[in-house]
Design a protein around this nucleic acid. Sequence first.
DNA 1: GGCTTTGGTTCACTATATTGAATTTTTTGC
DNA 2: GCAAAAAATTCAATATAGTGAACCAAAGCC
Lengths: 190, 190
Amino acid sequence: MTRNSPPDVGQKIKALRTQEKLTLDGLAKMSGVSKSMLSQIERGLTNPTLGTLWSLTQSLGIDIASLLDDSESAGDTAPEITVTKAYETPEIQSADGLCALRILGPIDLVSKTEWYDMRLEAGGCLDSEGHASGTTEHLTVLEGVLNVRIGGKVQTIEAGDTARYQADVPHKIENKGQNQARALMLVLAP
Amino acid sequence: MTRNSPPDVGQKIKALRTQEKLTLDGLAKMSGVSKSMLSQIERGLTNPTLGTLWSLTQSLGIDIASLLDDSESAGDTAPEITVTKAYETPEIQSADGLCALRILGPIDLVSKTEWYDMRLEAGGCLDSEGHASGTTEHLTVLEGVLNVRIGGKVQTIEAGDTARYQADVPHKIENKGQNQARALMLVLAP
DNA sequence: GGCTTTGGTTCACTATATTGAATTTTTTGC
DNA sequence: GCAAAAAATTCAATATAGTGAACCAAAGCC
């Protein structure tokens, strides 16, 4: 469900102000926004300007984006633990069968974060097109040795090492060694 | 470094509009904001009202909070691979030495995403206070068996399984088994 | 009781965000 | 090249966000 009117910043600001034990006057002084304006904003009977909101958030020590963020104060969903069993975990295999990816992230999620348990047989490789601009990839090798190739560059990653790189251009992960390799791969969208 | 003036919404809006192949006129019509206003906002020579920003974000199909969010659109850093060697990877140990966390995420990053390679000796446990509201944790067991305890609930997680839960309340991860356990832990802020 | 102080709301005025029409600039066709 | 069309910018007028002072209400304090 999505809102059809601007978020009610008034309430939030008032809450924050009282939380800080600030008087209407006090916040007015330190933010440079007039007391009367503040009063009206808090009661929702005016339509504040980006500039004044900015001043207020600065004095309240919060991020302006978070002020407008409608993720209501703490979902009150009862503490729940959901378990994805090993056999339920989705797995992708490459055509040659040398590369397998187990998707560890939640499926439902239109997430900005994806992560995988990757297994590469000797000689296997994972070829990726570029993802969305700004995406970074983090590859931690758990067992074996891997090469990361991106643009002209190549890097060798051994067990325990982590490689980080921009994933918005084509890149390649190869297992040039004699043994199976296993790694954790994290893809972070901006 | 924090900004000392409101975020430049103009540029962002223009970028979004052109991305959608919308004309100034077009967006004006569908949002109800006048064409002239739009033009001025995009060029940053006015201080728009929360209301008008709301209308615009609605028509552009984005969240108003994200509009004000200053996570710059994609650094154009040249393709680089940075490697954190195993011995450079920061490791945290519990007082009793039964629990060790290797921090796999980048250090610099004031990231919304943190992840760890966790090792729990038999009998060891990791006690967490609640993180920021809305935070979720994803725990994939690589070896051994672990218990997750949160509120009154307990869940047993075996090798290959993944547990997901709200991490904004105190929670506990225990190794009740006879053998060392190893797991991957991901903490996602909202 | 009345006097003072403190936190908040209303009021009259000013500054400016917003508008619709006119104008300029850019694009597209011939 | 020049016209016609489309897109973006200026301009004068209006609505309203923002201000400071006056006003009201409640809480000390003598």
